[in-house]
Amino acid sequence: MPKKLLQRFIPNPEQIKKHKHLKMFGQLLHKPNLWLLNRRSAPGAFAVGLFCAWLPIPFQMVVAAALAITFHVNLPLSVALVWITNPLTMPFMFYCAYLLGAGLLGQPTAEVQFEVSWHWLSQSLGTIGPSFLLGCLIMALGWALLGYLVISNLWKYSTLFKWQRRHKE
């Protein structure tokens, strides 16, 4: 069940191999293990994708692809999961990360007036930056672990249910 469900949502390998930002990986993208979807590669891909989704950097897909290649997990799934962070979800996710970081550091939360400028960014890194970055790191690690455990258990129970169904027939 998880394999068929996941295969519906992950991008085509040819689309990923032709992506302009991922061409820098060259022949590494042609390793067959990166395109397999099995009980080892799917949970790892979820962990990589969810970890990278919480990184407050541009080009998260490139980082997800590099980590998928490094850990030999499903590349399309890792790259696709990065899109959890999109213009609609990013403000909420990163605000939650900031609140978590501020709470862990024992700092009061500040009301943030966002501006798209280098001046605002450099000024804010000194005030809210440590809380925000710590929150992002904790969320990235937590969601990666949660994604790994959930998909690993779903795969395991799906396999058990298939075996039980076969033995009944």
Rank of each mutant, 00 (worst) to 15 (best):
L55Q: 07
A45S: 11
Q27A: 15
R39K: 15
C52V: 02
L50A: 02
A42W: 07
A42G: 02
A45I: 06
H30C: 03
I69C: 01
K20F: 15
K4S: 12
Q60R: 07
A66K: 05
A47C: 03
I16G: 01
I16W: 03
L5E: 09
A45N: 07
M61G: 10
R40W: 15
K23V: 14
W35V: 07
L34N: 09
P11Q: 13
F9N: 00
M24D: 09
W54C: 10
K20C: 06
A47N: 00
R40T: 13
P2Q: 13
M24Q: 14
L29C: 07
L28C: 01
A66G: 06
N33R: 14
F59K: 13
G49S: 03
M1S: 14
L5S: 05
L36W: 09
N38Y: 07
F25D: 04
L5I: 11
L29F: 06
K31V: 03
A47Y: 05
L36M: 12
K23I: 09
V63S: 04
M61K: 09
F9W: 14
P43K: 10
K23S: 09
L22H: 06
K20S: 14
M24I: 14
I16V: 14
P11D: 10
A42Q: 04
A64G: 05
I69T: 08
L55T: 06
H21V: 11
R8C: 04
L34P: 04
R40I: 12
K4V: 11
T70W: 15
E14M: 10
H21I: 12
M1E: 10
I16N: 01
K18F: 04
K18A: 15
L50M: 11
K31H: 02
I10E: 09
N12T: 12
H72F: 10
A66W: 01
A42N: 00
N33I: 14
R40K: 15
V62W: 01
K31I: 01
P2N: 14
G26F: 03
P58D: 03
H19P: 04
K18G: 09
I57N: 08
L37N: 01
N38T: 01
L55R: 08
M24A: 12
R40M: 13
Q15C: 12
P56Q: 07
K3I: 11
H72V: 06
M1L: 13
A47K: 03
L36K: 15
F59E: 04
P56L: 02
C52R: 10
P43D: 03
A66S: 05
H21Q: 13
A53C: 08
G49L: 01
W54F: 15
H19D: 15
Q60G: 01
A64D: 02
W35P: 06
R8F: 09
N33S: 14
K4L: 13
P43H: 11
P11F: 11
A68W: 01
R8W: 04
L34A: 02
R39M: 12
K4D: 13
A47G: 01
I16F: 08
P56M: 00
K3H: 10
P13F: 02
E14Q: 14
L29T: 04
R40Q: 12
